[in-house]
Simulated assay, not measured.
Amino acid sequence: MKFLVQWNGPPAAQQPAIERFMKTRGLPPDGIKLLGRWHTIGELSGCAIAESDDTAAMAAWMIEWGDVFSFKVTPAITDDELGAALAAAQQAK
Rank of each mutant, 00 (worst) to 15 (best):
A89V: 00
M62V: 10
A76I: 06
P28I: 02
W7Q: 04
S70P: 01
A13S: 14
L86V: 15
E64Q: 09
A89T: 06
S45P: 02
P11N: 04
Q90T: 08
L86K: 05
L35A: 03
P28F: 01
Q90D: 09
R25H: 15
R20W: 08
D80L: 11
A50N: 01
I49Y: 13
I18D: 06
L35G: 00
P29D: 07
N8D: 11
T78M: 09
Q90Y: 09
E64A: 15
I77P: 00
R37L: 06
A12T: 13
P10N: 10
V5C: 05
R25V: 08
T40E: 14
G42W: 12
A60M: 02
L34A: 05
G26W: 03
R37H: 06
G26A: 05
N8P: 01
G42Q: 11
D30F: 11
R25Y: 13
D80I: 13
T24K: 07
S52P: 05
P10D: 12
Q14I: 14
S52H: 02
Q6M: 14
L44F: 09
E64I: 05
A89N: 04
W65I: 01
R25N: 13
A56P: 03
S52T: 09
K33N: 06
Q15K: 15
A84S: 07
R20Q: 08
A13N: 02
I32T: 03
K23I: 04
G42T: 11
P28Y: 00
T78N: 10
F3N: 02
P10Q: 15
D30R: 09
A87I: 10
E51T: 07
K2W: 11
P16H: 06
T24L: 14
K72D: 13
E43K: 15
